[in-house]
Nucleic acid binder design. Sequence first.
DNA 1: ATTGCCATGTAACAAGTTACATGATTGT
DNA 2: ACAATCATGTAACTTGTTACATGGCAAT
Lengths: 193, 193
Amino acid sequence: MKREVKNCIFAEIEMNSLAYALLAMVARKDCSGYELVQLLELFWQAKHSQVYPLLAKLEQKQYVAHRLVKQNGRPDKKIYRLTEQGREILSAWIHEEPAVPVVRDEFLTKIYAIWLTSTKRARELLHERIQYFTDMLTDRLLKIREMEERWSDDLYDPHSPQFGRYMILQRKTRLEQEEINWCHWVLERLKKD
Amino acid sequence: MKREVKNCIFAEIEMNSLAYALLAMVARKDCSGYELVQLLELFWQAKHSQVYPLLAKLEQKQYVAHRLVKQNGRPDKKIYRLTEQGREILSAWIHEEPAVPVVRDEFLTKIYAIWLTSTKRARELLHERIQYFTDMLTDRLLKIREMEERWSDDLYDPHSPQFGRYMILQRKTRLEQEEINWCHWVLERLKKD
DNA sequence: ATTGCCATGTAACAAGTTACATGATTGT
DNA sequence: ACAATCATGTAACTTGTTACATGGCAAT
């Protein structure tokens, strides 16, 4: 959990956390850039404007390669796959210490300063937050069920490509549930007012 | 939980989430830039190189003001306080919808790709993670106890400047505990291997 | 001796966001 | 009619990180 080693021998130049995240995803399953953005949302929010150019760079370095898939009534897509070289640097990178997690959450700043205004606004913020996480959670549980139906036992096999994503989904639901619990706990403290 | 409204009427120009976070903190208690970085760590990790220039800008806009405090055998410090104007835009900003939370956690990417290597490395990563969060949690519980000793009942009063920080501390410990629980849960899945 | 804490600041760079650009299809 | 989804890309900008700069004191 140390800071990231820059210019490490495996990467030559400019391999960052997002680049590795993309490699990790195409390792599990061939993906288009568009799909990657959506899959990434689970633990790394990136915009397409960041992902597309990065994929091109990763292809230049031959860590990924794409094939064009033509579609009817839809734009064509580039389906990326991990190359042998890509797999190698990914495996090497896993043995480095991960960078410290970063969280930035404006909601918390508002809670920090809530004493300046009304408890009514506090309640509002908390209810919106509960709504937000409930929606997230509902969606998340749906995705968990989808994975369970599709892969069943594989999900508990640490050698299956699905293992990691499934574990991370489980983690997210736990944390989201705990966020909701905390909101209710705070609302209780606001009742007396 | 919508995206942030840019160039909003209250801010004139370039007021960002970090700027509001700084205002929220000096609202609770007069602080030096150095101290702000440390207090901020709880929910917004910012480096001093970002905080110091931003404080200067906030002072230009007269949202904060500082006084110099001379110290013996230590560099002098600038203690910032919130001005009336600062308090006004802060109160107004609380009524806007918070931006969606952002999380970036390289550890999760490694878990995502762990099937490529050994379960031994998986265990290692999880144990380090447990260690990291246990350390965080220990420190956090200490801070909670400190606050409880210092302010006791105020912490549950939504009109007290301490309320927000206390609630956020409580939230963090809950989430950190749940992170640890999840790690143990994953380690169980790895045992069979 | 060397690391870590206190305390502030700037410069160069990397990472991430918003806006611009295109365009067909499906659903409300 | 209007928005949303699919699909890719670039340009301009903002935000955040790393490195440079200074310097005394306390602890190991």
